[in-house]
Amino acid sequence: MIAQMYEQDFIAYFIFGIVLNFVFSILFGIYLSKNIGMQEMITSKGEKEQSSLVAISLFIPYAKMIITLYRVAILQFYFLNKGKTHKEFWIYMTHEE
């Protein structure tokens, strides 16, 4: 047993979490590309690397999905509600401070 679950159940939750992560990530990417424009995203992308915690979180069920939803919340509450643009969010996410 793993985390009080049978191995088959744990693996099923794990795979479902990874699938949900990719669905949310793809939808968020499509949303940003529609609002910013693909060419503009390519030209304004910085060289900021993701932290190792984000890379490791792919192996924890639902963790990467929660990180993606956290980024959506930052976009909504910090940028859009304060009158900033989607492009400013993109620059914030891809450039070093």
Rank of each mutant, 00 (worst) to 15 (best):
Q8C: 02
I2D: 02
L20G: 14
T68E: 10
T43I: 12
G17H: 01
Y6A: 06
M93N: 12
E49Q: 13
E97P: 15
I26E: 12
I66Y: 12
Q76K: 14
G37Q: 00
K48T: 04
I66F: 14
N81T: 03
M93A: 15
Y92S: 05
S44R: 03
K45Y: 03
A73N: 14
N21F: 13
I15A: 12
A3P: 02
V54C: 10
I56G: 04
N21M: 06
S44N: 09
S51F: 11
K64D: 09
I18C: 10
G17M: 08
G29D: 11
N21S: 15
E88I: 04
R71E: 15
M1R: 00
G17P: 01
A63V: 05
K34T: 00
L53R: 02
E47V: 10
S25K: 10
Q76L: 13
A55D: 10
K45I: 01
P61R: 01
I56E: 06
G37K: 00
V19T: 13
A73D: 14
L75F: 05
S57D: 02
S25P: 02
P61A: 00
I18D: 08
S25A: 15
Y70S: 13
R71Q: 11
V19A: 14
T43S: 05
K84P: 03
S52H: 09
V72H: 05
F24I: 13
E47M: 12
S33L: 06
S52C: 06
I67M: 07
G83K: 00
S33I: 02
L27A: 15
I60F: 13
S51T: 15
Y31F: 08
E7M: 11
G29V: 06
W90K: 01
Y70D: 12
S51L: 09
K34V: 04
Q76E: 14
G46H: 09
D9T: 07
K82Y: 06
A55P: 00
I67F: 07
G37F: 03
V19M: 13
Y78T: 10
M38K: 00
K48V: 04
V19L: 14
I42G: 02
S51G: 15
H86F: 14
K45A: 15
F89I: 03
N21Q: 09
K48W: 05
A12N: 09
Y31V: 06
E40G: 00
T85G: 09
V19Y: 10
V54P: 02
T94M: 00
H86R: 07
P61G: 02
Q39E: 06
K64W: 06
F14L: 13
M38I: 06
I15Y: 10
L75K: 03
F22P: 00
A55C: 05
H95K: 08
Y78G: 07
F22E: 12
L32R: 02
W90N: 01
G83D: 10
E47R: 14
M38P: 01
I60R: 01
F22W: 10
M5Y: 04
I42T: 05
E97C: 07
S44W: 00
F59G: 07
Y70G: 11
I15D: 09
F28H: 04
T94C: 03
K45G: 08
M1V: 03
L20F: 12
L32N: 00
V54K: 05
K64L: 14
L53E: 11
L53D: 10
F16D: 09
G37A: 01
A55I: 09
I56W: 07
F79W: 02
I11Q: 11
N35K: 15
